[in-house]
């Protein structure tokens, strides 16, 4: 490891890290916001469930590099536009979370839903105040998987020249130089672990009634 190089590149690395966080976290939030209503729809309708889960499965099979290249055709963006990455990762996040949200809502005990109904909760009140909170641990478990894989997927965009931590890999390859590669791997793993930890904390904060063990 050449620490002197790292010191000189510090500003640049912070810049790449910032982009990496932005490109990984934005799709996570967008994906969750889209997946919640879709998952609820799949949970409510037995006919929609297999359809949505099936489409999600198909989207998941498309390799990330291919999706990065194909999205400009749909969005009308340029190939170097970071928006493509955000859109692609949002697609993956939604594909993963639709099923998770539907299954989370399915996992809420029927007794609980009936009790809410009996106490006079309206449909949306029951959903927001009872069913979603009870399903939080399952949704968080899915969110953790999405967060960790997003961090890894963002780095693929380096092959298209979009700056983020993956740029350290291509830079290292061109220079035949280990330091940026190792630094990039370490930062990616640490970033994934931090996001993972934040979601665990979020889960605890949202579900104070559960024992302090997070299902993974």
């Amino acid at each position: 490891m050449n620490f002197e190089w790292l010191g000189r590149q510090f500003d640049n690395i912070v810049f790449l890290l910032g982009w990496h966080v932005l490109l990984a976290v934005t799709p996570l939030i967008l994906g969750l916001l889209i997946a919640l209503p879709l998952g609820w729809w799949a949970h409510r309708s037995r006919r929609i469930y297999p359809l949505l889960v099936g489409v999600a499965g198909l989207l998941y099979t498309v390799p990330s590099l291919a999706l990065f290249v194909l999205l400009p055709l749909v969005l009308g963006t340029k190939i170097l536009d970071p928006l493509n990455i955000v859109a692609a990762l949002t697609v993956y996040t939604v594909a993963l979370l639709v099923r998770v949200v539907a299954d989370a809502l399915d996992s809420v005990p029927e007794d609980t839903v009936q009790a809410a109904k009996a106490m006079g909760y309206r449909g949306y009140q029951s959903l927001v105040k009872v069913e979603l909170p009870v399903g939080v641990p399952v949704i968080c478990a899915g969110l953790r998987v999405a967060a960790v894989s997003n961090v890894s997927l963002v780095s693929v965009a380096a092959l298209l020249g979009i700056p983020q931590l993956g740029s350290l890999f291509t830079q290292g390859f061109q220079l035949r130089f280990y330091t940026p590669i190792i630094a990039g791997i370490v930062l990616c793993v640490v970033l994934a672990m931090i996001l993972d930890g934040l979601i665990i904390l979020l889960n605890r904060w949202l579900t104070p009634w559960t024992p302090k063990v997070v299902a993974s």
Partner: peptide, 22 residues
């Protein structure tokens, strides 16, 4: 089992690939 699956999911495959090639 548990450790391996999580650790390898977090590892960026592009970085891993380039490191091993070098």
């Amino acid at each position: 089992i548990a450790g391996l699956a999580n650790a390898l999911r977090a590892l960026p495959s592009v970085g891993l690939l380039i490191l091993l090639v070098l």
